[in-house]
Amino acid sequence: MIYLDYAATTPMSEESLDIFNQVSKSFFGNPNSMHDVGSRASRLLDTSRKELAALLDCPHQGIYFTSGGSESNILALSSLIDAHNGKGNHLITTISEHSSVYHFFKKMENAGFDVTYLPLDEHGQVQLDSVRKAIRKTTILASIQYGNSEIGTIHPIESIGTLLHQHQILFHCDAVQAFGKVPISLTTLKIDSLSISSHKLYGPKGVGAVYINPEVKWQAQITNTTHEMGFRPGTVNVPGIAAFVTSAIAVCNDRIKEQGRIDSLRSALMNELKQATVKSHIEGHPTDYLPHILGLRIDGMEGQYVMLEGNRYGIAISTGSACQVGKQEPSRTMKALGYSDSSAKQFIRLSFGKHTTTEDIGKTAETLRYIINKFLQSKGG
């Protein structure tokens, strides 16, 4: 099977697996326990926190470990909004956010908050002017993802953060797809809160992290919580965190070389698909994009059909974010780009990783062309 769904999840690296096993055996203590076994786990947890902070260029006191990207988003948003809701009841986000963020804001609407969903341009990018127009005196917080998980478009995060800070508006950024793919310096960027996830970086599932600027006030969601400085209840997953940070260091150290390689594979596949009988359309920004994500539409063919046929012939792709699979509604991102339901359902996503080879790209292009021709023949084309 050729795996081209790295944006959904990645296989654990051997290095990460090895660290997970070692720490599980040798640092099994609860880091909140006062005895020596707990203290050893606590020291390793503190080291992991500092190492992750170094990758993000931020103070380690602002790092909180969680169970993954979705919990990171929800806890960060809840903790910040609850601490600052005296300012007003207006929130800003985009229609194309990850489902954890999108459904959180729908919940906030039901709780009486006023939410503005920013539009996207034809490339799926938020324009700075639309953010400016959305700002009110009662705006508490804005949440805008770093890069879209379906089409890979990168938003102008630096400019947006600067604008929001000029208006004293908190800025949360879901960077789950972007971390390890683009340089992120939280000393430079005006981001108050940022979420990342281990399993997008060849680390274990069920582990993630949040950064919240130590100078920004937040409110614990469950009072008297002791773990993670009161941010999240539950015994801390020290082996998972150590494995997460190990994989994150490896990915970040290899980022420039690997993303150049991935970008070449992406371009090669795009060129191969130009030879197909039916036209394929590349979705997303032509220059501001995450190289490992390629969003496509193939004229006249539903994405689910292409995905299932691809699976039959040994190619694993998706029809969008894994968190939306199984739902009948077309992609919110595609709808935000102005497509009809039928056109939006033509969407497929291919995403590449460190095990993707030139041979995989050639075989994928060949298979997709075969699926297209087979479909045309069945329709009498």
Rank of each mutant, 00 (worst) to 15 (best):
F104L: 11
Q145A: 05
V131E: 07
H155G: 05
L77T: 02
Q61A: 15
H155I: 12
T93V: 08
G152L: 09
M108C: 04
L77C: 08
G147M: 03
G161R: 04
S96E: 11
A83P: 06
T153P: 01
Q127F: 10
I135P: 04
E71L: 12
Q61D: 14
G161I: 06
D121H: 07
S100R: 07
T116S: 14
I95M: 10
L163H: 08
D121G: 02
E109P: 06
R132V: 02
L77Q: 12
I151D: 11
G88A: 09
I135L: 13
D114E: 10
I154S: 00
G62S: 09
I151P: 01
I92L: 02
L164A: 13
K137V: 11
G112L: 13
D121T: 03
F104A: 04
H90F: 05
I151C: 10
I154P: 00
S130N: 12
T139S: 13
H165E: 02
D82N: 13
S149F: 00
A111T: 03
I74E: 11
K133N: 11
H90G: 00
Q125R: 15
L163S: 06
G161A: 05
G112Y: 12
S67K: 11
N110G: 02
V126L: 11
G124N: 10
S99F: 09
Q166I: 00
A83Q: 03
H123V: 06
L141E: 01
I151M: 10
S130H: 15
S72V: 07
I74R: 11
I140N: 04
T116I: 04
I95T: 11
F105W: 02
E109D: 03
S78G: 07
I74V: 15
G152T: 03
H84P: 05
K133T: 04
K107C: 08
E122G: 08
E109Q: 15
G69W: 03
I92K: 03
D114K: 13
T138D: 15
Y64F: 14
S149D: 01
Q127K: 14
T94G: 01
K137C: 05
K87R: 15
L118P: 01
K107P: 00
I74M: 12
N85W: 07
R132G: 00
I95Y: 11
H60E: 15
L163M: 13
I140C: 06
L80V: 13
H84R: 02
Y146W: 12
K107F: 10
I81A: 01
L120Q: 04
K106Y: 09
Q61Y: 08
T93L: 13
I157G: 05
R136H: 14
Y64D: 00
I81E: 01
N110S: 12
Q145D: 00
Y102G: 01
S159T: 10
I154H: 01
H98D: 14
A142V: 09
V131K: 04
G124K: 08
A134C: 02
Y102N: 06
V101S: 07
F105L: 05
L164I: 14
H98R: 13
V115F: 14
E150S: 04
Y102T: 02
Q166N: 11
M108G: 00
F105S: 03
I140Q: 03
D129C: 07
A76C: 14
E109W: 09
V115C: 11
E71Y: 05
V101E: 01
H60V: 04
E158C: 09
L141M: 13
L77H: 10
